[in-house]
């Protein structure tokens, strides 16, 4: 069983001209296991994206280390690291799919080509990758847009292609940085449901960043609340509102339950406290 472990990780960005170095993350510990849907909430600038970049392997911790299974995630290969756990060193890879806040689609490809891009990179033959891409495009409601160019889509549609692309690639772990922020309420709810369905079926690990407390509570099995300067995890909650949602398929009912409302108040109090302090 694979597990992502983050051990005492700190990230310090070098000082900008005339400023101090920014401690974006300070001694963060976190373990994500198979089947965990971890949602990160926190004020702007508390290091959520930095944490996601670390897990994806895009950046390297200043201190501490991350492991996924037996291999150690490094922003880029270091010579002579003197590893104490595992042997393998891995950068970003197909085992961890990423959806960015703003889509990063390739404008020279059309919708279906973008969606199947990962499979193409891995040499999956055309027929199969088309089928798999089409399946996920249908799930995000874009079955009629296969041949459209990226710039012919609305912002929300572009974001949905980004999600379909990540799902088509079938990674072990999905890293999502505010993926639904730009969507209207209705599409947003249906995509929340889609992600939950995928999660329940595949038991992928997910790391999901959001600013929306309701979304966080509805999706998470584990909710981490982060606070800025220096960025760290201050609270962690085990939740099961997503079970309720998957049973009832009624987001509004779940969200109006007394437990949900109480939890939301609690979280909002923490975040507002942080924002006032910051």
């Amino acid at each position: 069983m694979n597990k992502l472990k983050i051990h005492d990780v700190s990230v310090v960005y070098p000082a900008a001209q005339g400023g101090d170095p920014v401690t974006a993350l300070n001694e963060v510990n976190l373990t994500i296991e198979q089947g965990d849907l971890v949602v990160a909430l926190g004020a702007s600038g508390c290091g959520k994206t930095t944490l996601l970049n670390l897990i994806a392997g895009f950046i390297r911790p200043t201190d501490g280390y991350l492991t996924l299974g037996d291999s150690r995630i490094e922003g880029y290969p270091r010579v002579a690291v003197g590893l104490d756990i595992g042997d393998e060193v891995t950068g970003p890879g197909a085992d961890r799919g990423v959806v960015f806040q703003k889509h990063a689609l390739l404008p020279w490809l059309n919708v279906i080509e973008n969606t199947e891009f990962g499979l193409k990179l891995q040499g999956v033959d055309k027929q199969e990758r088309r089928e798999r891409a089409a399946k996920f495009l249908k799930l995000v409601g874009l079955e009629d847009f296969h041949q459209h160019k990226i710039y012919q889509l609305s912002g929300g549609m572009q974001q949905r292609v980004g999600i379909a692309r990540a799902l088509t690639n079938d990674p072990q772990m999905l890293l999502l940085d505010e993926p639904l922020g730009a969507l209207d309420a209705l599409t947003r709810e249906s995509l929340q449901e889609l992600l939950l369905d995928v999660w329940r079926e595949t038991h992928k690990m997910m790391f999901f960043i959001t600013h929306d407390v309701d979304e966080a509570l509805l999706l998470a099995t584990r909710l981490i609340v982060m606070s800025p300067r220096p960025g760290r995890i201050t609270h962690e909650f085990e939740l099961n509102f997503n079970q309720q949602f998957l049973e009832t398929r009624n987001a509004r009912q779940v969200k109006s339950s007394p437990e949900f409302i109480a939890m939301r108040e609690k979280i909002l109090a923490i975040i507002h406290g942080d924002e006032i302090a910051a």
Binding site: F58, P92, A94, K102, A104, L106, F117, L121, R165, N169
Partner: peptide, 20 residues
Amino acid sequence: EQIQVAYSMGASRRQVVTQV
């Protein structure tokens, strides 16, 4: 971001250059 997404879909360095 386009480069990073390609890497996290399994692209090799060479593929990043030729495909992105």
